[in-house]
Design a protein around this nucleic acid. Structure first.
Lengths: 191, 191
DNA sequence: GATTGACCAAAAATGAATTATAGTCAGAAA
DNA sequence: TTTCTGACTATAATTCATTTTTGGTCAATC
């Protein structure tokens, strides 16, 4: 059986983007790592950007599987949301590619890396939005715009789970759950 | 009466930092604008950083006055919070110095400009935190950590009022008020 | 027909020479 | 004496011509 050169290219690219980032990954390097002539890459992908898009798509798919695996159809909306968000942030924090992209954006602002992260965030928002809509339909949540609500939920979670740390001790996972419920679910108003 | 050279320096510096940013403001320029020898600046301020700190302190003071002017002791907490936050963001958006610092951080990441903006945010957070504590004491809000709560309120407001715009049409001021109340005050849970 | 790597134009990195800048201080002005 | 100044210096930033690297191509090879 012939060797699957496309797979070789994709795996080499994934490794290289994860290890060195978008800018520092060269097509020569990917070709060498894949044990393939450089021209071969261009029979599968029109250019570097499309190769990168394919790798990002895999990351997004993988994240969706991880999220879906954490989701419990029998559980409550907030319990699920909390667990899924926690799992997604943890995934993003540990996945080499996602980490590298975030660093590259922070350090040198590579536009393609930023675009990749934005696509990742969009995927997360779509996922939450669908769950919010379902919860509204089931009567578990008040009527509200699912898109804005998903956006607010992600922002609030990010604020508590990662932005807070830039100036304070990190909050415990249980503390985040509790705060998330207090602020968004029950509300702050007395009576 | 002798001319107040310190005031001249401070006013020239404020003008220059607002117009050109931190990095592009030179001490020679400030001296010339202030009609003062360069050495004179150094009799009042040890270095460029301290001069900038003085200007930022004025901005923070000014913002506090603006916030306090918007605050109505007879009104409800959320009504006040909403109006004060709106006023503060508007102030920040229109004040040359604040705008210039934000651009400088985005474009070239000047550390001192970032530090300035962080100090501005800290001042806002302290202000909200005090009002939150008062509202808890009055029984208007549930018991909660005032520091985390102030942080969440600001983040939520920023998310709705400015981050949302990066990918969508801006939300109306009344819409923001309504969402802010729905999410944080009343909560999303049904029943 | 699939694969390759030498090749090319264009972009990026380098670094030596030049310019600009923060901060000093000897002396002028008040 | 005291206050103020701008020429001066060491260092940092900027240019820009030169070199190196890179994404992408395509005639030759398998």
């Amino acid at each position: 059986m012939a060797i699957d050169r496309r797979k070789q290219v994709v795996e080499a690219a994934a490794q290289s983007f994860s290890l060195f980032g978008y800018k520092a990954t060269t097509m020569d390097q990917v070709a060498k790592l894949a044990n393939v002539g450089k021209g071969t890459i261009y029979t599968f992908f029109d250019n570097k950007e499309e190769l990168f898009d394919e790798i990002m798509n895999s990351l997004i798919q993988e994240m969706k599987r991880v999220a879906e695996a954490e989701y419990d159809p029998a559980g409550s909306f907030f319990d699920n949301l909390n667990r899924v968000l926690g799992r997604i942030l943890d995934f993003r924090e540990k996945h080499q590619l996602a980490v590298k992209m975030a660093h590259e954006v922070r350090d040198i602002g590579t536009p393609k890396a930023l675009e990749g992260l934005n696509r990742l965030e969009s995927a997360i928002l779509s996922y939450i939005q669908i769950k919010v809509q379902a919860a509204i339909d089931k009567g578990e949540l008040k009527r509200c715009d699912p898109e804005v609500t998903a956006f607010v939920m992600l922002k609030l979670y990010l604020a508590l789970a990662s932005e807070w740390q830039t100036a304070h001790d990190p909050l415990e996972k249980e503390k985040i759950t509790e705060l998330f419920q207090l602020y968004l679910l029950r509300g702050l108003a007395n009576e």
